[in-house]
Every structure is written in structure tokens, then in C-alpha cells.
């Protein structure tokens, strides 16, 4: 269940659209829900969002499964989403992905045993001039090198403690 504050945010989002078009709020509200409920969308969460927007649960499932930013299973506290498309590949993203795999001892799509890190490969994030790069939470980490990756991992570990 959302807090009072988040429920007000939902109302504010719905007010952006004409009356009766509250379904338009679905993607913004799913973002909110994912942030609020542990970084992923369980079927309970999706049903809850459906009830908030007065739409059918299937309408939420359809959307949640379509967009790549919605996680349908639990993820680590920090998700490394490393871009692997052409422009990043030209600047060495393969090496960065390999380095993270070794460093965290996980494969792409896996989460470390301590539940701290998940590694995902993603397609172009629009930071091609600052490649190689990854998304970490709300922000981009650009011009990645093994040293920078080490520093990011350390930063996350110390934040988690």
C-alpha cells in the first residue's frame, strides 16, 4: 500500500489527463510502485496498481511485461545495467561486462549471494558519446574503466552498510 504522500502523488499524476483517461497514469504509477516496493513488481503490486487506477489487472500485466525497465522478479539492491549496443561496444563495453562478471562472480542476469548487486546488459541508453556506460538507479555512470567500476562497487558497499 502506498503512503498518504504517494497516494497524493498518484492523484496529482491522474490530474494531468482528461477525466476518464486515468489509465494514462499507468506507467508513471508503475515507476512509483517499483521504487516503493523493493525494486520490482510482484503480481500483488500490479493488482494494487490496477485497483488504484480502476483498470483490469491484465491491463497492468500487459504493460509491465512490455517495458524493459520494469522488473518482474526481485533484483539486488544495486542494479548495474551495462549498455552493450554498437557505440558502447566500439568503446570496449565487452571488457567492462567481463570485468564486472569476474569481480562480482556472477553472470549477466544474476544477483550476488548477499543480494547487493544484479548485473544486467541493456540496449542503447543514449549516452553513446560517453561510452562505455551503465545505469545505476536514477543516474548514468559514464566513461567506465575497471578502476571506475571498482570505485562504484566500493561506493555501493559502503552505502549499504
Amino acid at each position: 500500500m502506498f503512503s498518504e504522500e504517494k497516494l497524493n502523488k498518484v492523484k496529482e499524476i491522474i490530474a494531468r489527463y482528461p477525466a476518464g483517461k486515468q489509465k494514462s497514469a499507468l506507467i508513471p504509477v508503475l515507476h512509483l510502485a517499483q521504487e516503493e516496493f523493493g525494486g520490482w513488481l510482484s503480481s500483488e503490486t500490479m493488482d494494487y496498481v490496477a485497483s488504484l487506477l480502476q483498470i483490469k489487472p491484465i491491463e497492468v500485466y500487459e504493460v509491465a511485461t512490455f517495458y524493459s525497465m520494469f522488473n518482474l522478479k526481485p533484483v539486488g539492491k544495486y542494479v548495474f545495467e551495462v549498455c552493450q549496443t554498437g557505440p558502447c561496444m566500439l568503446r570496449g563495453s565487452d571488457n567492462i561486462i567481463d570485468y564486472i562478471k569476474k569481480k562480482l562472480d556472477i553472470s549477466v542476469g544474476e544477483t550476488t549471494k548477499d543480494g547487493l548487486f544484479t548485473l544486467k546488459t541493456v540496449e542503447c541508453l543514449g549516452a553513446c558519446g560517453y561510452a562505455p556506460m551503465m545505469q545505476l538507479g536514477k543516474h548514468y555512470r559514464e566513461h567506465l574503466t575497471p578502476e571506475k567500476v571498482d570505485a562504484i562497487i566500493e561506493e555501493c558497499r559502503s552505502k549499504a552498510n
Binding site: 494514462s24 506507467i27 508513471p28 508503475l30 515507476h31 517495458y67 525497465m69 520494469f70 541493456v122 540496449e123
Partner: peptide, 10 residues
């Protein structure tokens, strides 16, 4: 003017 975020779909 309203800002709407997508969710990862080219």
C-alpha cells in the same frame, strides 16, 4: 505542459 516518463522501449 506535463512530463511523462516511458519505461524502456525504443
Amino acid at each position: 505542459i506535463y512530463v511523462q516518463r516511458g519505461a524502456g522501449a525504443y
